[in-house]
Nucleic acid binder design. Sequence first.
DNA 1: AGAATAATGATAATCATTCTCAAAGATAAG
DNA 2: CTTATCTTTGAGAATGATTATCATTATTCT
Lengths: 142, 142
Amino acid sequence: MELGSNRKSRMISLLRNANVRITDQRIALLSVISEANDHPDVLELQKRAKKICPSISLATVYRTLLSFLESGVVHRNSFEGGGARYEMAKEEHHDHIIDVDTGEVVEFNSDIIENLQFEIASKMGYDVIHHRLDLYCRKVSK
Amino acid sequence: MELGSNRKSRMISLLRNANVRITDQRIALLSVISEANDHPDVLELQKRAKKICPSISLATVYRTLLSFLESGVVHRNSFEGGGARYEMAKEEHHDHIIDVDTGEVVEFNSDIIENLQFEIASKMGYDVIHHRLDLYCRKVSK
DNA sequence: AGAATAATGATAATCATTCTCAAAGATAAG
DNA sequence: CTTATCTTTGAGAATGATTATCATTATTCT
């Protein structure tokens, strides 16, 4: 599979900003993550990246995800059962509903909850560095 | 170390309720967990249980924790970094503040947040099966 | 282009956890 | 209290996810 040169140059400039070398595997992975609207795990990301860069190894996927994580480009979600799942970092924080039957993930956010968290932590003498709210749910049978 | 017979018989009756055979390792583990007011991991639990039942193996700790988990006697917390940490199940749900510097865990609860969660899930067509809210925090430097 | 430096692929190592199975222990019936 | 039955245990192997190692290859700088 070929990557549109428009998309490709967007990936390259993102990588330049992150101050890392431009490689085919990084372009492929970044492209795949930014294209995804689900929350794929490492194996799924490798599978998708291979369509663009067939040689990409699992080690490189892990390494690259870690560096993306550290530079704040992606977020890592460690839900119960199975490995970590990744998504593009977004401006506003959000939380997750995980469908316990299908593994599907949907996002939501609540400023009220968010503010209550900071209030509670503050009252107890803490600054919140980061936080996670996961709702393991089942679809309501109508 | 010897277990007071008072404590011991309390453990035994808890185990009888759970409908499992009474063994020294189960008595030891249950005693250690119900005594703990921190959130120990598996290795720490084995270490503490060994003081009461020196022969207890890691496999048995894992197995027993799983059975306690399934019968609802304990809760398992999978915080970031490191293995799962356990605590006695309590009547009311609570959430956790994890000190990112020390690993120390403190509990809190907020009915308002709790209710908002259910409301949000419901609005999106889901029933909440279980949920977790973890605040990774740092102590405010005064 | 060539030297310097960083990234890659393959695989070994690590860590947490679960599985396997023979031996030991607990429970139930006589 | 002894035997027969069925469960649990301990030791170590197996698994799954992730990270480390290292020689080879690719990227960047001059």
